[in-house]
Amino acid sequence: MRIGWIIGALACTAASGLAAQDTRGISRAVYVERIATAPGGESVRTIEPARALRRGDTVVLVVEWRGTSRGEPVIVSSAVPRPLAFQQASSDAVEVSVDGGRNWGRIGAMRVDDRDGRRLASPEDVTHLRWRSATGATRLTYSAIVR
C-alpha cells in the first residue's frame, strides 16, 4: 500500500509541483534505477519508468521545458516530493531551498536548524529546486532516494 502512495505522490508532485514564468510547455517523468547481475557476473545499470518503488530505490526525475519565444529568461521551480531524499542534480547551476522555497542558494551554502543546533544543509534537506534558463528547450534531471 505504501508503494502505491509513493508513486501517487510522485505523480501529483510532478504534475503540480512545477512553477514557471511563461513557458511553452513543461513535461516531467520519473524513472527508477535498477541494477542487475549479467550472466558474466558484472553489474548492469538500467533506468526504467517508475511503476513500483521500494524504500532505498534510486529514482531519476526528468523535467523538460521550452522557454519563451521572446528571448526572456525562464525560471522553473519544482518541489522535491516528500517521500524522496534529493541526492544531486545534473547541473551545477541549480539553486536549492531547504525551507519550502522561501530562501534559495547553493547546497554548500545553505544552513538548517535541527535538534543539535544550526548546521550546514545536506542534499537530503533540500525541499525545492530552481533553474534559470534562456530561450530554447531545456532538460534537467535530478536523482533522489526513496525514503
Rank of each mutant, 00 (worst) to 15 (best):
G67W: 00
G117R: 08
V94E: 04
V44W: 01
Y31I: 06
G4Y: 02
V60I: 10
R28E: 06
I107S: 12
I75G: 10
I47Q: 10
T135M: 01
A29C: 00
A36L: 11
D92G: 12
V59I: 11
A38I: 09
D125T: 07
V112E: 07
T13L: 00
A89Q: 02
R118H: 10
T141S: 01
A121M: 03
G40F: 13
R147N: 11
V126K: 08
L10F: 07
A14Y: 05
A134R: 12
S77V: 09
V146L: 06
V98D: 10
R28T: 11
R147A: 15
S122Y: 11
V32G: 01
E64H: 07
S69D: 14
D99N: 11
S69N: 09
S143W: 08
G41W: 03
G4H: 09
D99F: 09
I107M: 07
E124T: 07
M1T: 12
V59R: 08
H128D: 08
A52F: 11
E48D: 06
T141N: 07
A20L: 09
T58H: 04
A9L: 15
R115S: 14
G4W: 01
M110G: 15
A85Q: 03
S143Y: 06
S90I: 10
L18E: 07
E124C: 04
N103W: 15
V62M: 12
